[in-house]
Amino acid sequence: MYDFLELSNVTKSYGYNINAVDQLSISLPKGKIIGLLGPNGSGKTTLIKMINGILRPTSGEILLSGEKIGPETKARISYLPDRTYLTPGDNINAVLDYFEDFYEDFSRETAMKMLEDLRIDPRAKMKTLSKGNKEKVQLILVMSRRAELYVLDEPIAGVDPAARDYILRTILNNYHQDASILISTHLISDIEQILDEVLFMRQGKLILYSSAAAIREQQGKSVDAYFREVFAC
């Protein structure tokens, strides 16, 4: 029996001495919202990229339900990168067609409902949207899939506080209990309320894996406050 997401001695090196991720081993369960937290350069995005097959580990192995990262796992992971990956000249309807064609778990109805909620015209071209709206469209695409694992890299970084609430509600409302969500963010206080577990990373190494409740109970402070204490400069 495999853990849901299993990383064994995963290392990603750039050059001879720089390990963006260093001998990282961890098993993550199903049905949890997990915060991937750490300061800039701690290796969060590198780790996320490796889970999604955008980067290849220098050594080690990543398995999703026992399968190596490949087309089969990509069909089950819904990934929101920290950048705009949609073609500027495409309109949103064309992007929905694209997702509908390639992802069997994509629900156009769900996406249209969310676009309507956020008053985004599906006929609009990506290049005409504001940065915040582009991010919202990407999040809508990602959360309109019924994936087993959602990997969200800085999902609320570029949007206003009101939209953050909507996005967090969207994340909570759209993921199902058998799925897991891995969220990387600097805005811990905004997402702390929805986190079940947290991973702290520093210089490519995992320094803490705990439930959010345990941190609050054992440390007597919020995850955000504890993060500031651990990573104080």
Binding site: N52, G53, I54, P71, E72, K74, A75, I77, Y79, P81, R83, T84, Y85, L86, T87, F102, Y103
Partner: peptide, 17 residues
Amino acid sequence: KSMYSDEGYLTHTLPVK
């Protein structure tokens, strides 16, 4: 652009070989 720039993030996360 579609393979090795930002758009590659979509291309290479498609469930295809």
